[in-house]
Design a protein around this nucleic acid. Structure first.
Length: 257
DNA sequence: ATGGTAGTTCAACTA
């Protein structure tokens, strides 16, 4: 059994006790983190090592920052998205045995009229190119992270209100489908689902209490791995804790010998 | 239609 998860922690400095507690209450093999907001010299490697996790990370001051925690050593690390020439630390790719793990913090995009949205679409386009190369070399691949895209109306609490807005625009949804078309499937949608299951709720407007959320954190797996995926769930519990991240973890399990 | 909160850093930006 192989259990992998993604969690946008919105500052690992603040959330470290929660991440440690959550890891110790689950049986996670690999955890992809986004928005660590830590420079590499400040990354709490020792704290994770004490509970049995190796860590690789790519951080910067104040914004962004990604990390992968793993019970087994990780290798062949890439922390730059080719084609971007980008100081923003939003991608971290590493191998866990023969599984290629691609952890992403896809840009938010602000709004459809902004330069940030152009940057988001460019980033998605470069990610698609990068994935094709990675899949060629590594047929067993998992792409996971904070995508900042709700792929379908079922992933949005009020799809009419959100139609055409950032996180749920036709262009972003099309880009998400382009990612799937490289040879991936959305593990969450491999199984029957209750409605209104989300991974992110705005801190404002008491969104969590009212379940006004969106499913924007995803675990996509290449087809050979999808055949071995037997479970995916959103763990709402950390979102109920004191001083939570605005995102909650998503977990997928694979039957891998 | 606007803004509501949270984190980083310390006025303003990102989300």
């Amino acid at each position: 059994m192989f259990k992998i998860a993604t969690w946008n922690v919105n500052s690992l400095r603040i959330r470290l006790p929660q991440v440690l507690a959550w890891l110790q209450s689950t049986a996670i093999d690999v955890l992809a983190l986004q928005e660590t907001k830590l420079q590499d010299q400040d990354f709490p490697s020792a704290a994770f090592q004490e509970i049995g996790y190796h860590a690789v990370f790519a951080g910067q001051k104040t914004y962004n920052g990604v990390a992968i925690l793993s019970r087994s050593p990780l290798n062949h690390v890439i922390s730059e998205l080719p084609g971007m020439g980008d100081p923003q630390k939003r991608l971290l790719c590493a191998s866990h045995h023969d599984i290629r793990i691609v952890n992403v913090y896809i840009p938010n995009g602000a709004n459809l009229e902004s330069d940030k949205f152009l940057y988001k679409m460019k980033w998605l386009s470069e990610l698609e190119s990068f994935l094709k190369v990675q899949l060629q070399a590594s047929p067993r691949l998992i792409l996971l992270g904070d995508f900042n895209i709700a792929p379908t109306p079922e992933d949005v609490h009020d799809p009419q209100q959100w139609e055409g807005k950032v996180l749920f625009s036709p262009a972003e949804r099309a880009a998400f489908q382009d990612l799937l078309a490289t040879g991936l499937c959305d593990t969450f949608r491999l199984f029957p689902r209750d409605e209104k299951q989300y991974s992110w709720w705005d801190y404002r407007i008491a969104a969590f209490r009212r379940n006004l959320g969106m499913r924007i954190d995803h675990i996509l797996a290449s087809h050979p791995l999808c055949a071995q995926c037997h479970h995916c769930h959103i763990d709402r519990e950390p979102r109920t804790w004191e001083r939570p991240s605005d995102h909650t973890p998503v977990v997928a399990e694979f039957d891998i010998s």
